[in-house]
Design a protein around this nucleic acid. Structure first.
Lengths: 236, 236
DNA sequence: ACTGCAATGCACCAATGGGTGCAGATTGAG
DNA sequence: CTCAATCTGCACCCATTGGTGCATTGCAGT
């Protein structure tokens, strides 16, 4: 919330030296996130963050007051990025060009790519790590993480159902399962974010997920290769 | 590995005061895991662990040498527990009593329960948190986490396929997707382990997962309620 | 040139916590 | 009882680090 508000406020260039000030703030936020993710909240020192952001330690305190506030702001900013990227992916399901399977696979690939993104894993690790110490992080990301994405996906699926291209009772449940098929397999493949999943493997996962999804919710009775929906899976 | 080996070595009661020594070690490991999970590795102090394990700080150093080694041993021990519980669940797919759907739902419920377990979340959080600092944790859990479970599940599914009760190209891929359907939806519902998912909701998730799975891989052309495989989902 | 705000560099404080040393208590085996 | 291995309580060292104070510099508007 903090980051978003400030970015919006940046529209007024009249404030004295506002431009430079905002630049500093952004630099601090970006660097702080990287350092927090790399070293962990407790191990990360403000001196290191200050040095890597090319900023005096005092400047950080001027902007954020203390370490915890900085963590929250950095996480919020990064979560905003991630949410935007995910929603952009789902939005491609609007005005698709006729071929439902192709459209779903395209979106699936993009969502998979969002999930495998290095920064996304850094954010995930940070959240898992600090949620016990700072339960309020939940509020910070509740509106920025998977929930709104699944919801947007449900909206798109509902349209397809209405148009008779899909069969489903609850679009929200279907969206949840599609998301699960897309990301669930990647959880293990990414090895806690330490392994970069090659593009080919990402595509295979997306294809297999969409295959299975269409088998369960599609109207087309039996598309090509129906008997083995997961034949397309990656070799390794 | 460390914990398992030691437990096995405990079979020789001839060593002087071996019994008491093992007890101490177990107490330290259990307490260390709890404290690490509760406070995070960096924030957790050996004084607190010693106090809660009712042991002198020196005793911890006698057994494990330093803090990092203690962390690794504690994680290994807990991962062993988790793996055993998961494999026990999957093993129920042996000699099932005829009804495939019921058997899958039973196993699904058990796996879901394993996933939602408080200790499992604690372990997951700890791994996510410290994997960046201690990449070797990957080796420690590689043989204890999802991979062997999915593999065991694939073995069972392959048998069903051979018996003509399921249709699938690659059992491993099918197992991966079933696991994804089971746990993927829970990821969001558990809110990073801060929310306890009620049993009814767990069962609904398992049922929905098995429903979708059977739609994609089942031989029964169209079971009851086929058109809306996810109708059974929980209200909230 | 003057004013005011932000940023800087540097020294400093106080608390925290990993790890060690040591002397004494406990325990089980022979 | 003796012996050896552990376990215990306590004091201690020392490096780290969040946070502060202060004097100085740089920049923008007037």
């Amino acid at each position: 919330m903090a980051a978003g508000a400030d970015v919006a406020a940046a529209g007024s260039p009249t404030r004295p030296s506002a431009r430079g000030r905002i630049d500093k703030r952004q630099a601090i936020l970006a660097t702080a996130f990287v350092v927090f993710a790399r070293e962990g909240y407790a191990q990360a020192t403000l001196d290191v963050i200050a040095a890597e952001a090319r900023v005096a330690k005092h400047t950080i305190y001027n902007h954020f007051g203390d370490k915890q506030t900085l963590l929250r702001a950095a996480i919020a900013a990064e979560a905003d990025r991630a949410k935007a990227k995910n929603l952009a992916a789902v939005d491609r399901l609007r005005d698709h060009a006729g071929d439902l399977r192709a459209a779903l696979e395209d979106v699936g690939r993009r969502l998979v790519e969002c999930f495998c993104d290095e920064r996304a894993w850094a954010l995930r690790r940070l959240l898992y790590a600090e949620i016990a110490q700072f339960p309020d992080l939940l509020d910070i990301i509740s509106g920025r993480a998977s929930d709104p994405i699944t919801e947007a996906l449900a909206d798109r699926l509902a349209r397809f159902a209405l148009a008779g291209h899909l069969h489903m009772g609850d679009p929200a449940a279907a969206a949840e399962q599609l998301a699960a098929l897309l990301t669930g397999s990647l959880e293990a493949r990414c090895r806690y974010g330490t392994r970069v999943v090659p593009a080919a493997e990402q595509h295979a996962v997306a294809r297999a997920a969409v295959d299975t999804f269409l088998h369960a919710f599609g109207t087309d009775p039996d598309p090509a290769g129906a008997l083995s929906p997961s034949t397309a899976n990656a070799p390794a």
